[in-house]
Write a protein that binds this DNA or RNA. Structure first.
Lengths: 256, 256
DNA sequence: ACCTGAACACCGTTCAAGT
DNA sequence: ACCTGAACACCGTTCAAGT
């Protein structure tokens, strides 16, 4: 087993200068050519955007950074840890919503931006979804989000829950949105076509056994994912609003 | 390219006898030894339970059913389609909640049972999450769920949305719950330990830059996932309740 | 109609060996 | 300290060939 220094600093908030992508390299007369984990993460991000998660191999990431596959294992314990790095690198591109409007508006905007961030990179949701890794960029976003929720009057426990709830929803939603609708659809077909095809499946089911699917075929396969996302987001915000002591008039006006 | 009959019946509701796992095989004097897609799906389910998604290979599924890997490609276009089969097989074990109580109680129970179903099989959430495939069992559940929502007074569009919303939430939640918390946790560590370790990370952050993470360390890493799930589920239900014309007293009583 | 042997082009990971 | 060559044990998929 080779000596592997990439061990305990995975979760440590190193290199936390707010945004300045400063090349560290503290050692004075080093060859200055040593690979950094940041550099590997950036290369992985490029491979992901180009080839998707299925095409993201250690060998390709290594080639992207001009090195052999085996070399990566000096900086990273295994592929799983590389994906953790990639996870944080994805969130690094996040822009926090402005602190204008009430907590509800900011919460909604947080959800929208998170979704947009995931949609911007191919297969991003599949990487982020099952990964609680606490990279520095993720911690920064979480810190800001909790600050707003507590400021809005949520209890500590409720603020923590509300934050978790939002990420579970957004990740679950985008995962559906970003993934191929089915094996059939994977073989080239736009989302609109796939939706129409799915609607056709529903519509042509036997009405005796599946009356609701037949009737709601159009509603179930509406390709307007923005509207669908907004719907869920507003339900979440309404549900959270009911937890606060002072719901200005009452939640639930403006039903749609 | 070999002639492959497994093509257009992916989404067709074939073999839809409600629960009776009837071996079809319409041909009279066939060797009766031909592999069925149901049989392959069942074998895949066993391999999944045993070895997880990472260990689910075509070769292993073939071995499980007593055949060579290449043989599977007669019944299934590729691995993706096998996962579609697996997806529906997973849902086949679902039991619908009783039709007692109001729509809200039934909606909550739907969410709980869906979560329990996913938790019951290793990596189930990762299979189900990005897959809209319309297998017969999935269609049956969807039909029933829509029927209850419409009966409760939701509009067609809202019923479709509410159903989609629930599955996005449950899938997103269980995905987080079921996946390794990080690369570090993947190397043997119970969830409680991992949660405690994550809490330690939060607690020991610099308080100047991350005051909220430090303060909420315990709330953020509470390992009681049941409570966490219920929280989100109730927020969803509250948000949906606000859409109905007759909220008996008003949503939001009993805040916790 | 259904299954197999053998091959192709890949994987992640390890480890002695180089510098 | 960092990187490489070469190997190991796997993959998914294809396709001619068997029955």
């Amino acid at each position: 087993m080779a000596p592997n220094p990439a061990t305990s600093d995975t979760a440590a908030p190193d290199a936390f200068a707010p945004d300045t992508a400063a090349p560290p390299d503290a050692t004075p007369d080093a060859p200055a050519r040593a690979l950094t984990r940041e550099c590997i993460a950036a290369a992985a991000l490029r491979v992901l955007a180009r080839d998707g998660l299925a095409g993201l191999s250690m060998r390709k990431v290594a080639a992207e950074v001009g090195v052999k596959a085996a070399s990566l294992y000096w900086h990273v314990r295994n592929k799983e840890e590389l994906l953790d790095l990639l996870n944080d690198a994805l969130v690094a591109g996040a822009e926090l919503p402005p602190r204008t409007g009430d907590w509800r508006a900011q919460y909604l905007e947080y959800g929208r931006r998170y979704r947009a961030l995931l949609l911007a990179t191919r297969d991003a949701a599949r990487i982020v979804a099952g990964r609680l890794a606490t990279g520095p960029h993720i911690l920064a976003v979480l810190e800001d989000q909790l600050d707003r929720l507590r400021g809005a009057g949520f209890t500590d426990a409720d603020a923590a829950m509300a934050s978790y709830l939002l990420s579970a929803y957004v990740q679950g939603f985008v995962l559906q949105e970003q993934s191929p609708l089915s094996a059939a659809e994977a073989a080239g077909a736009t989302r609109g076509e796939a939706a129409r095809a799915a609607g056709e499946v529903f519509r042509t089911l036997p009405a005796e056994t599946h009356p609701n699917l037949v009737a709601l075929a159009a509603d179930l396969t509406d390709p307007d994912m923005d509207a669908r996302f907004e719907f869920g987001l507003h339900r979440l915000a309404d549900g959270l609003a009911a937890l606060l002591p002072t719901p200005r008039p009452a939640p639930g006006r403006e039903p749609r």
